[in-house]
């Protein structure tokens, strides 16, 4: 039982990183209908920006976090100009292919400029252990779910109670009507990309103290995030949050009780099953278009 709780805690930590990446992805998809395969690169570049800010320029962590936020938001701004602005009236496949291209370009650019050498953010938290009953982990790991909840909570409040949040939600419900009601559609698109990229970048930065940073870390995380988005229902933010944690826990349990080699298989098997039997996702609502 003690071990079970430890595995559960491990799953929550890794699941939290999935949530942060998946929420941005689902936001961009839900509001703009863009399937963004370059989202993992926002995660990767956010991690690099943070590691560089801390190790090269010796910034304190809060300042580095601000740098990551600004840098990632700018990245999102640029991505919108490439993936959404020129493509929004075209077939959805154009932006999908284009996002693939952007992902490969960013990855290789990172490989050329930053090199294949893995990096790691060393913080003063790395050696402080936390014990909660039978569960044991270093403080930096324990902080990740906390940071996830704060960020998702803030995002939820913004979407619920601010003017920007309302316009984002109106866009996701019906773009044409939103435009007729005076929502500045172009601005909403840019803000969506910036928020999505910033979330992924912060996730990368948070995880860079726990996991190694190298140019291809975005590959797996974006696939995991897509799994989460599908499980949670496309465009459903709370669904993504719950599904992300579920995926993390499932993976942790798989490598604990089955075999570690199965952990990446299991998530994708579930996705295929969900797509076959419950295509709206575990938490999505099925609706008929008129």
């Amino acid at each position: 039982m003690d071990l079970f709780l430890q595995y559960l805690a491990n799953g929550v930590v890794i699941g939290s990183s999935y949530v942060l990446v998946a929420v941005g992805l689902t936001l961009i998809f839900g509001i703009l209908g863009v399937v963004n395969f370059a989202h993992g690169e926002f995660y990767m570049l956010g991690a690099y920006a943070g590691v560089t800010a801390v190790t090269l320029f010796g910034m304190p962590l809060p300042l580095a976090l601000a740098v990551v936020l600004v840098f990632s938001a700018l990245l999102g701004f640029g991505a919108e100009a490439i993936l959404h602005k020129p493509m929004k009236n075209r077939d959805a496949t154009s932006s999908i292919i284009s996002s693939f291209g952007l992902a490969v370009a960013l990855q290789n650019a990172a490989l050329l400029t930053l090199g294949p050498q893995p990096r790691l953010l060393k913080t003063e938290f790395s050696t402080i252990p936390i014990e909660l009953g039978p569960v044991f982990m270093p403080l930096q790991r324990a902080l990740i779910p906390v940071a996830m909840m704060v960020l998702i909570g803030a995002l939820y409040l913004i979407l619920r109670y601010t003017w920007t949040g309302r316009s984002l939600r109106s866009m996701s419900q019906h773009a044409t009507v939103a435009r007729l009601c005076g929502v500045r559609v172009e601005r909403v698109a840019v803000v969506t990309f910036m928020v999505g990229a910033a979330l992924a970048g912060v996730a990368g930065f948070l995880m860079s103290s726990v996991f190694m940073v190298h140019p291809i870390i975005g590959n797996m995380i974006v696939l995991k995030a897509f799994t989460v988005v599908i499980l949670g229902g496309m465009g459903n933010i709370l669904g993504a949050a719950v599904a992300g944690l579920l995926l993390g826990i499932t993976e942790s349990m798989t490598s604990a009780y089955l075999a570690n080699g199965l952990r990446d298989i299991i998530g994708f098997v579930i996705v295929i099953a969900v797509l076959l039997f419950r295509p709206q996702g575990l938490f999505g609502k099925a609706f008929e278009r008129s």
């Binding site: 071990l3 430890q6 595995y7 491990n10 799953g11 930590v13 890794i14 982990m137 995880m207 726990v210 996991f211 190694m212 190298h214 291809i216 870390i217 590959n219 797996m220 993976e251 942790s252 349990m253 490598s255 604990a256 570690n260 990446d264």
Partner: peptide
């Protein structure tokens, strides 16, 4: 490139 080995190592 797998990042999280914590559960495997706990086992």
């Amino acid at each position: 490139g797998e990042q999280d080995f914590s559960s495997m190592l706990t086992k």
